[in-house]
Amino acid sequence: MDAIKAIVESLIFVAGSPLTVKKIAECIDGATEQEIRGAVQSLIADYEGRNSGVRIVNVGGGYQMRTREDMAQWIRKFMGLKPVALSRAALETLAVVAYRQPVMKSEIEKVRGVDVSGTLKGLLEKNLVRIVGRKDVPGRPIIYGTTKKFLEVFNLMDLSELPTLRELKELESSE
């Protein structure tokens, strides 16, 4: 078990992008996915337990090593980064795409009441939004959805982890 755990840890360390249990199982002969899942859980607990600045998170369908959020200021300083934030416009557009996908540009514009060509293009370039296809209506408009990278960037296991619109409405009315 400890051997598998060490291997899993090293694989997650080098991977960079989220690593699926399936992919790990392919690399370790004789280890079942069940065992690997156990090893990952045990690793997660280890990192939490010793208050490490790094943790292993389940994100975008796989496991990834990331720094803890309260380490951000030092990391930014070290890397010479300014805190980058998406603009309000981009976030609103992204929210509509995330909840309403697959969604047409005109539908996003109806919700936001403004032209979204620019923000949508920016989101496509950042690879947070992708073209899912075309809708089978006259004009065959393009329909959009979110990407795997969106899940990775926003720390989500999958889309169901987003708060539901009902929860958001309740939040709004309780203010």
Partner: peptide, 29 residues
């Protein structure tokens, strides 16, 4: 329209409050 927009505005704020990769949390390149 206003109610719908208000909901998505809240959703956008929720997204912003998350631990965003490259802003709050970092991974190995």
């Amino acid at each position: 329209q206003l109610l719908e927009y208000q909901t998505f505005k809240a959703a956008a704020l929720k997204l912003e409050a998350m631990n965003i990769l490259g802003r709050d949390v970092f991974r190995r390149p």
